[in-house]
Design a protein around this nucleic acid. Structure first.
Lengths: 323, 323
DNA sequence: CTAAAGGATGAAACGCGTTACATGTCAAAT
DNA sequence: ATTTGACATGTAACGCGTTTCATCCTTTAG
């Protein structure tokens, strides 16, 4: 293996000069640079990343913590990977299955300098513990965190949800069900608040018996639909779903049960994924890729000393055939 | 920052002994170990990964090259990440969008020792060029490669496809369309061969006019369905799809066009994802997670000097409601 | 003509563990 | 009593760039 020292010896210059060539330092004469580059080429030399990282203290790697990789987070993941790459950073994914010990592994990797920063997509570690790792490097979260020390690019789901309600209620929907996500997440609480406030505002009943927690997938959506039908009470006239997948499940199962959509049941999804587009589900567009970019921009300050502006984001309702 | 040397000084032992403690060497007395661990704890010490990697020449990171992250590859990705993690390896994802220069970046990272090995999910770099990187570390491919130097865990799609045909033809289907994938991939060729051979065997027409290349998503499936209807010729009686998503698209569009499935058109998907389960699509189960494990096992030999057995894999037809 | 400024380059320390080899000790084997 | 060997621990080199500070030479300004 050829290393920098070897290049130095063969070229007759010092390691410092070779290093300068590698780093495009202006303080190298043209001829010197040419000579050294030539020798590097002949020896098929590439610098060792680990040595660079050890020296500089930077790995140019960012860790991404997520419970699992699924379709919902893909736009965020892809958006983040792309912008990070543009700035020379690579993304390492930590799939944790919501296991604290695996999450800790990711945080420890920040401490051990395997990664320069962390992006949290979902995590169950307490905000307090997460904060204790902030001193080792910047941490940004997609999920809203209780702790101001941790940057967040999550959008206030309250507004998105309110958008959906202001769309449904004027259409005459009074009894509205909710397929919710993670029970203790801020998003879920925010959505519940939006719902309960809207109901109060319009003087409508809050149907807590039609709250369905922990719904994430198509299958969960189907389960919710069946559960609604089995309830002793009459079917709600509309359902707000935590994401498009759940909405798709509800829709498929509703059709299978010969319900008319939106006649018997209106359905609203969330995220505006391809699936909702295909199935014609009304949904709330959540500018996820833009959030991912903001996440990287937030890290840019501490990481590269460059302050990048946060993009302005807002929700949008895409009306299709299910409302 | 406290480093190993500091621990050594404070404990009164040498760096070597401290290192032995870190690496659970048996040649350290109980008291010494206890003392050193105590000091490490007090100073909140963790070893620096970059230093370790530089010393050992191993990063315990494996790069994964993929065009993009999508639902089809998720089982592979998740399966691989899981087994790798169990053995102390982390996975770095390179999203390339089939851009050779981005792929080269991944290969260069192998050369520069940022990763110890590479797993290719999809890549457009020539087999010859890929091979030229084999000397820097083990490379395994999910996609079948033309080059024997590169390990592959892809299954012979020929068998899976034949399974589907042996299911359809006895049911009386004679005119069979094909929604295919990447035109020049070995999988696609293999599928075409399986189709053409089966057709010959049963003395049925090969409908090349009903080959639809480059279909990957639900939207592609819908497109295919519409294209079939627009063709001057009568509709085929069945269609084999490159994956469940395409099948789902075909199915949804078929329903929208008021076709009966399987009456007017039988549909077979591929991969047995949740989607096909939900929509009741007959599909070929492709043991993808097991393939991912095999991929890691293949890397285990060169990487850890441990030969791990390859699991035996085979396709299975899951009959549902679309055939 | 000289001092100040600037550019090219080198020496050496640094970042941080790992590991081959050497040394010293004490107990078991002969 | 002596050899053999296992065991605990230390020494020092190694892996490989980066970076600070110093040096030397050439301009340019005064």
């Amino acid at each position: 293996m050829s290393n920098l020292e070897r290049i130095a010896k063969l070229s007759g210059f010092s390691k410092a000069t070779v290093s300068r060539v590698l780093n495009h330092s202006p303080h190298v004469s043209q001829e010197t640079r040419a000579t050294i580059l030539q020798i590097m080429k002949e020896l098929d030399y590439v610098p060792n990343r680990n040595a660079i990282s050890l020296s500089t203290g930077q790995t140019l790697q960012i860790g991404m913590i997520t419970s699992s990789i699924n379709e919902i987070m893909l736009p965020f993941l892809n958006g983040f990977v792309e912008v990070a790459e543009q700035h020379g950073f690579q993304t390492i994914i930590y799939t944790t299955n919501d296991d604290t010990s695996k999450e800790r592994q990711a945080f420890e990797d920040l401490r051990q300098k395997r990664v320069d920063a962390l992006v949290i997509i979902s995590c169950v570690t307490s905000a307090k513990e997460v904060e204790s790792y902030c001193k080792y490097g910047p941490i940004v979260s997609w999920q809203r965190m209780d702790n101001p020390a941790i940057g967040s690019v999550a959008m206030d789901q309250f507004k998105g949800y309110t958008l959906a309600l202001d769309h449904l209620i004027p259409k005459g929907h009074t009894r509205i069900a909710n397929a919710l996500g993670r029970t203790y997440s801020i998003n879920t609480r925010s959505r519940q608040q939006a719902y309960e406030q809207a109901m109060q505002k319009y003087n409508l009943p809050v149907l807590r018996q039609f709250y369905y927690p922990s719904t994430y997938t198509i299958l969960d959506g189907e389960r919710v639909m069946r559960a609604m039908l089995q309830q002793s009470e009459a079917l709600p006239s509309a359902i707000l779903c935590s994401n498009d997948h759940v909405a798709a499940g509800v829709l498929c199962e509703a059709r299978r049960q010969h319900l008319r959509v939106p006649g018997d049941l209106a359905i609203v999804g969330f995220d505006d994924t391809e699936l909702s587009h295909t199935l014609g589900i009304t949904t709330i567009r959540n500018p996820i890729a833009a959030q991912a970019q903001n996440a990287f921009h937030l890290l840019s300050g501490p990481l590269r000393g460059i302050d990048m502006p946060q993009a302005e984001l807002c929700f949008e309702l895409i009306e299709r055939t299910t409302t």
